[in-house]
């Protein structure tokens, strides 16, 4: 219950912050639209028409009202309604994020558990070292190296997806292989290491020891106790990863020329297109808040001892 209140509060903070960022700029939308060409009277008239002469709290209420009715405004540079732009880009981001998410969800607990149950063995040490290195290599470096070696040098996979629509992407999955790999690598390694540490710690914990003394089989101990405990601890990390994958993999999209949400955000930032920036910021922060809420609830369910305010 308190956790849900916190999430609501977070949403409110995001809304206010996004609005303040929008209003605190030197110059407002009217100045930007008219540029240097308009006379002061014209700018003033436009300002009145857009409702920019109202006091800030009134405008905030106004903006919030339109937000809830689904009117996100129009882009300053293209004049396209923000909603349309978002819809087109969300397809690309999903085509990228969903496979990556599936890979991480399946592989991370698997690798982490296998590794954690054999802590200190040779395969474990090798896996752990590989995960550590892959996790540490910056995404843009990994992407560059993969493109250079696999696509430009060996010619195995396409290097970019410049100018492709979501439909084309699904028709030619080869284009997605490299972006998804780069996107998956970091999160997968991060999560697998977390699960491994959790499994290794739980396996030698007092509770597991006690269950063994009670005569439970090792398999039961691992499946019913060790694994839930380790996954509960990793749920937070998983939330970060979901939010990173779905909330626009900014770097990967920039690297491969994919026109997804992250790329849209960068473009909006570069054009200083505030209605767009506000919407993107709201979307990403909203996703983050929602995913974190779910993660906390799941973590609580899997490992009830871990208090929220630990």
């Amino acid at each position: 219950m308190r956790r849900c209140l916190l999430a609501l509060l977070q949403c409110l903070v995001v809304l206010v912050a996004v609005f303040v960022v929008g209003t605190r700029l030197p110059g407002d939308t009217a100045d930007v639209l008219r540029g240097e060409l308009g006379t002061p009277e014209q700018v003033e008239a436009l300002r009145a028409r857009l409702g920019l002469d109202e006091p800030a709290p009134a405008r905030f209420a106004h903006w919030l009202g339109r937000l809830f009715t689904g009117d996100l405004g129009t882009s300053l540079t293209t004049g396209v309604p923000v909603g349309d732009d978002l819809g087109r880009r969300a397809g690309v981001t999903l085509a990228l994020g969903v496979p990556a998410l599936l890979l991480v969800t399946v592989l991370a607990p698997l690798v982490g558990t296998v590794s954690g149950l054999r802590e200190g063995s040779r395969p474990d040490r090798a896996l752990n070292a590989a995960a550590l290195v892959l996790h540490s290599v910056p995404e843009f470096v990994l992407g560059l190296l993969l493109v250079a070696s696999l696509s430009l040098w060996a010619g195995l996979l396409p290097a970019t997806a410049v100018g492709m629509e979501p439909g084309d992407l699904l028709a030619r999955p080869a284009v997605l292989v490299l972006p998804v790999t780069v996107l998956t690598a970091r999160h997968l390694c991060d999560l697998a290491r977390q699960v491994r540490a959790g499994v290794a710690a739980q396996r030698h914990g007092a509770v597991a020891e006690h269950l063994r003394l009670l005569g439970l089989r090792e398999r039961t101990v691992v499946l019913r106790h060790v694994l839930p405990g380790a996954l509960g601890a990793a749920a937070q990390q998983y939330a970060r990863c979901v939010e990173g994958l779905l909330g626009g993999a900014v770097l990967v999209e920039a690297l491969f020329g994919l026109r997804g949400l992250g790329d849209g955000f960068v473009e909006a930032v570069q054009n200083r297109d505030l209605p767009l920036v506000q919407t993107y910021a709201l979307l990403f922060a909203g996703t983050a808040v929602a995913v974190n809420l779910v993660a906390d609830l799941v973590a609580h369910r899997l490992a009830p001892r871990r208090e929220l305010t630990a």
Partner: peptide
Amino acid sequence: RTSDVLLAFPGLLVLMTLAATG
């Protein structure tokens, strides 16, 4: 509680929003 509220924000996006506002 304040730090809980701040914990949820993805870093790169905050930096980008800042860049957008100059």
